[in-house]
C-alpha cells in the first residue's frame, strides 16, 4: 500500500533520510522507531508532499510527487504537534476539514462520536484538553474514511489515561482494516498497534522486525522503582544484586534496571526473599 524507494532527504549537506526503502502492506501497521533526529518525521512529511525529496514514494500505486492530491485523499494524517485554528469549535473544525476532504457532512457527527467528542462539539479547540485535541485530530483524519492512517508520535504529549484511551481507539481503527504508518519511541504503543517495526538511526534504516521482538533487538531497558519497608532496603538491594539485577538505592526505595521483558523478575525475587513490596512504579 505504501512504498518508499530509495527515499533521501537532504538539508544542504545534512542528510535527514538516507536511501530509505520500505513497504507497508495493505491492512497492516508499520511503526517507524528511532530516537529524536532519526528521520521519522521527515519520512512522514515527504509522504505527505510537504518536503521535496529524492527517490520515490507511492501510495496505493500513486506517485506522491505527481499525484499529490490523490495520494493525500487516501491518507488521514495525525500530526505530532497539533496545529489547529484555536478559535474554531470542534464541530466547525470538522466541518471545515470535511469540505476540504470532500467528505459528506453526515460523517461529522458519527466520527466525532467515535472519538468521544460528542459532548464537546461547541467548545473552542483552544479550550480542549491535550487528549481531546489528539482525539479530534484522529477524528479529522478519519472524516473521509481514508484507507491509510499516518500518525506522527500520536501519544507523545498525552498523560497515561489519555494515552490509553487513544490506543484503544487506534486499535479499533486498525481492526477496521486501515493501513497504518506511524512514528513512535514508546514501546507500549508499538506493541499495541504495529505488526512490524522499521528501526531508524541517523536517517538510515537499521533493520525491520516484528513488534514483539523490538525490545530485545534494540536492547530496550526499563527502570522499575520499588518501595519496601525502610528496614528492608539494604536486604532488598543485596537480594536483587545477588540475582544479577542492576539495583541501587533511591531515597526510601530501590531502583532496578531491567530489560523490557523482565519487569516482573525483581518482584518475584523480592517475593521469594519474603520482602514486602509496598508499591512500585515503571518508568
Amino acid at each position: 500500500m505504501i512504498e518508499c524507494i530509495d527515499l533521501t532527504k537532504r538539508y544542504g549537506k545534512f542528510i535527514a533520510v538516507d536511501h530509505l526503502t520500505l513497504q507497508v502492506a495493505e491492512r497492516s501497521a508499520l511503526a517507524l522507531w528511532g530516537a529524536n533526529g532519526a528521520g521519522k518525521t521527515t519520512v512522514i512529511k515527504c509522504l505527505l508532499g510537504l518536503l521535496r525529496f529524492e527517490g520515490a514514494i507511492r501510495v496505493d500505486g500513486l506517485d506522491v510527487r505527481r499525484q499529490g492530491r490523490a495520494v493525500r485523499q487516501r491518507i488521514g494524517y495525525v500530526p505530532q504537534e497539533l496545529a489547529f485554528y484555536k478559535e474554531m469549535t470542534a464541530v466547525e473544525m470538522a466541518a471545515f476539514y470535511a469540505r476540504l476532504k470532500g467528505a459528506p457532512s453526515e460523517r461529522i457527527d458519527p466520527v466525532l462520536e467515535q472519538v468521544g467528542l460528542s459532548e464537546h462539539l461547541a467548545k473552542p479547540v483552544g479550550a480542549l484538553s491535550g487528549g481531546m485535541k489528539q482525539r479530534l485530530a484522529l477524528g479529522l483524519a478519519l472524516l473521509s474514511d481514508p484507507p491509510v492512517l499516518v500518525m506522527d508520535e500520536p501519544t507523545s504529549n498525552l498523560d497515561a489515561a489519555a494515552r490509553s484511551q487513544l490506543l484503544q481507539l487506534l486499535a479499533q481503527v486498525k481492526t477496521a482494516g486501515k493501513t497504518i504508518l506511524f512514528t513512535s519511541h514508546r514501546i507500549e504503543e508499538v506493541e499495541a498497534l504495529a505488526d512490524a517495526v522499521a528501526v531508524m538511526e541517523r536517517g538510515r534504516l537499521q533493520f525491520t522486525c516484528d513488534s514483539a521482538s523490538l525490545a530485545r533487538r534494540v536492547g530496550l531497558r526499563t527502570q522499575v522503582k520499588f518501595i519496601v519497608p525502610g528496614h528492608e532496603v539494604e536486604r532488598a538491594l543485596e537480594v536483587l544484586q545477588g540475582e544479577g539485577l542492576a539495583a541501587r538505592r533511591n531515597g526510601i526505595g530501590v531502583i532496578v534496571d531491567v530489560s523490557h521483558g523482565e519487569k516482573a523478575r525483581p518482584i518475584h525475587t523480592l517475593s521469594r526473599a519474603r520482602i514486602e513490596v509496598i508499591d512500585f512504579e515503571v518508568e
Binding site: G49, L50, G68, A70, Y77, Y97
Partner: peptide, 14 residues
C-alpha cells in the same frame, strides 16, 4: 509559524 499551513497542505488540496 503556527504550523496550521503544514497541516492544511497535508490535506487533499493543492
Amino acid at each position: 509559524e503556527q504550523g496550521t499551513l503544514a497541516y492544511l497542505l497535508a490535506q487533499p488540496v493543492t
